[in-house]
Design a protein around this nucleic acid. Structure first.
Ligand SMILES: NC(=O)c1ccc[n+]([C@@H]2O[C@H](COP(=O)([O-])OP(=O)(O)OC[C@H]3O[C@@H](n4cnc5c(N)ncnc54)[C@H](O)[C@@H]3O)[C@@H](O)[C@H]2O)c1
Ligand SMILES: NC(=O)c1ccc[n+]([C@@H]2O[C@H](COP(=O)([O-])OP(=O)(O)OC[C@H]3O[C@@H](n4cnc5c(N)ncnc54)[C@H](O)[C@@H]3O)[C@@H](O)[C@H]2O)c1
Lengths: 207, 207
DNA sequence: TTTAATCTGTGAACGTAAACACAAGTTGAA
DNA sequence: TTCAACTTGTGTTTACGTTCACAGATTAAA
């Protein structure tokens, strides 16, 4: 395939497709067509085929895609073919939910370290992982951890992010409702569910 | 201003701008320029001005925007000038975090009802709201609730969504990692933090 | 009042992504 | 072997969003 710029949007959608594929895989489905996959998410089949085409040709005309093969391919594209370790900072209520969420596993993520600054929490265990003192964050250098999850109060978020970057973290999932500044090479995704909710009323005809 | 189609992306960004404005308001800042606001989020000032321009002219050349006035305007645009009531279904770990999250308040949201199907949980209180039996969901018809939050296991998500639609809910924030089918008039936003995390490794050079 | 500095609002140019349409590959039945 | 049904992959067209560049409004200082 000729080189062409890959739209960020296409990359953005791949994890969605992957989830659908892994679900089909669980159901022992062997092949899937772009049409089937599209129905699954309420998108158009040509969108999916186009998205895949940026990365190569994975399907068989007249048949569709081998579910197993395609999911492996997408994992490779997304760099999810190797499992990733993540560190969680902030073992509060949200932190506990994140640790308990089984959804990370299908993408090959594992949260292997948890830190907090509250003496009451340090030493305790959640989901079999013992909470460590955030001042000893450098412990993670020994492990191969490349992702960080921030679940601390807003005021502490930037400071924690700086420390994570120091430790060589390459990507951050930030739950504090604020922007955090990091070097360009570090990718940050910030999630604020209140902001997401705030997008709904616009589409609701005011009564 | 002439009519022009408003990009969904512009609407999508407004809640972000609004958060910045409300933060400035807290700091008693009176006016703000598109440049300042842009620096706050790491976007370009012309993007912000353009986004606003789809809805009208809110600023003063040479001065900038009145923080108070602009935030009021954006709230109106987003239909957030009236406070919205939301119902939460699923009083598990995630549900508790959502109830405890103070971030909803600045957008004028209030979670006024909580439902579950676990007899152990029904009757208990979280954050001063007593958990009710989901089979009595129709209780919300008396209140003016237009938003629903789904925090139940995946298998129950569609069923809960159907019930919420029956009760006249107009927008749904869905935390179950699956697509839910609703009538077109109902807007759904699905959040899966694992999927968000899965978007990071692509940008991380594989070692 | 004039001038310089500042900042908004927006038409127009530009770039990118979505949608389309179809050639070509595959399968299975006749 | 032929044909019909099906499905992919992609060049092209169309639609949309972003960026640019500047006219015009406002302010403060001279
Ligand atoms: N993005 C969302 O959708 C969402 C939802 C709920 C909460 N939140 C945010 O997530 C964050 C945590 O929420 P929560 O409900 O778990 O709060 P919490 O108070 O229960 O937990 C915060 C934890 O962070 C720890 N902490 C504080 N400062 C720290 C530091 N410098 N280093 C390490 N640990 C530190 C505290 O000891 C506590 O255990 C808050 O910023 C909150 O606003 C976000
Ligand atoms: N989107 C995300 O980022 C994210 C993160 C964590 C969890 N989750 C998802 O959120 C959901 C809840 O997670 P959790 O950790 O709170 O799980 P949980 O088991 O602690 O809570 C689920 C609650 O839903 C209740 N419930 C089950 N069926 C119900 C029904 N039909 N009607 C009403 N209530 C019902 C249960 O009694 C329980 O209290 C799960 O689907 C989970 O996968 C999503």
């Amino acid at each position: 395939m000729r080189y062409r710029k890959i739209p960020d949007e296409a990359v953005w959608r791949l994890p969605m497709y992957l989830r659908g594929l892994l679900l089909s895989l669980e159901k022992s489905q062997e092949t899937i067509s772009s049409q089937e996959l599209a129905d699954f998410f309420g998108v158009h089949p040509w969108q999916i085929r186009k998205d895949f085409s940026y990365f190569g040709a994975f399907g068989t005309p007249g048949v569709g895609y081998k579910v197993k093969k395609l999911s492996t391919q997408i994992k490779k594209i997304l760099n999810l073919h190797v499992s990733h370790k993540a560190v969680l900072v902030g073992a509060g209520n949200l932190g506990a939910v994140i640790l308990a969420y089984p959804g990370f596993k299908i993408y090959g993520f594992e949260i292997t370290a948890v830190f907090d600054n509250n003496p009451q929490k340090i030493g305790q265990k959640i989901e079999n992982i013992s909470i460590k003192d955030v001042s000893k964050l450098s412990l993670i250098k020994r492990q191969k951890i490349d992702l960080g999850i921030i679940a601390v109060p807003r005021k502490a978020a930037q400071e924690v992010a700086d420390r994570l970057v120091e430790m060589g973290i390459k990507g951050i999932l930030n739950f504090s409702p604020c922007r955090i500044n990091v070097p360009k090479k570090v990718k940050v995704i910030t999630i604020d569910i209140a902001m997401d909710l705030a997008r709904l009323p616009y589409y609701i005809p005011s009564s």
